[in-house]
Nucleic acid binder design. Structure first.
Lengths: 150, 150
DNA sequence: ATACTATTTGCGACAATGTCGCATCTGAGA
DNA sequence: TCTCAGATGCGACATTGTCGCAAATAGTAT
């Protein structure tokens, strides 16, 4: 189950030392899908290496983030106040969270790129990545009581 | 110095009890401008009421957020891991933070609305607000060493 | 295969940020 | 002025993340 080969290769190319623990965290990341919390990774990782330490997970996440291989989200704190991580894909996308049921959806749209272009041309800031989190009500929750808007 | 009348009125309309402490927090919010941390509000508020408690600040912020009167940001954790608050204006805007110097800029753009419309039409989620945080390098930082892209 | 060494890990202590229960206090309506 | 639902202050606690340092180890050289 050699998961996340993409990340493994990226790390090799950058001469990052591949420790057992880092492989474990990468595995856990690959298995866990999007929107994982650090603590989930710790728990998942400990299935493979029971001695895996909390600090190691955090340090690995920080390292991956520094290399631009993962993104850190907080999904509007709809649930708790921790952070979520996901492998960084080809392009940025929008996270949409329902304020009532907490469900999170993603949306890929060319408008995101248009926005980044606009940022560059108006401010001169050269964007490296974007985090777009939309607070919303999902169709189900909005349907149930469409009348009371607030 | 009756600041933030807009917020005061909004709270009155909603029959929220206007305590001395809440006025103090609103004042502190108005004085402090955008991107304030809870701790800053506490310190600023204590100038007006030395007994103002941390829990009260947090509870007031939670209340304001629930009423949609302020937004909570984390500005990509460019500096620390706390949260920032700002009074909610007429329309959502983009926060752009430089990963090197930490400077934060804002950008208002009609593209934001276009993005929300797209969210609605593609996912059925009805957006109530958006938080857009762009990671970038500001012109100064990018200029200094434009060669080393990484 | 073994030795070497810079890096990484585990550990435990700590820091920062936020939350909660409960006794007391108070804003605002009657 | 009286009243009481709701807000506050306080202190204890929870969660999330960080750090220093001794021990372990990946990757390289021998």
């Amino acid at each position: 189950m050699a998961s996340a080969p993409h990340l493994l290769n990226a790390l090799k190319e950058r001469n990052v030392r591949l420790t057992r623990q880092r492989r474990v965290v990468l595995d856990a990341l690959a298995v866990s899908g999007n929107h994982v919390r650090a603590e989930d990774l710790l728990r998942e990782g400990r299935k493979r290496d029971p001695n895996l330490d909390r600090a190691t997970v955090y340090r690995t996440l920080a390292m991956l983030k520094e290399h631009g291989l993962i993104d850190e989200l907080d999904l509007l704190h709809l649930d708790g106040r921790g952070h979520y991580y996901e492998m960084r894909g080809h392009q940025d996308h929008v996270h949409i969270g329902c304020t009532e049921c907490g469900r999170v959806t993603e949306l890929h749209s060319p408008i995101v790129q248009a926005l980044l272009d606009e940022v560059a041309s108006h401010t001169g800031f050269r964007a490296t990545s974007a985090r777009i989190e939309v607070q919303a009500r999902c169709p189900e929750c909005a349907g149930g009581n469409a009348r009371e808007q607030r």
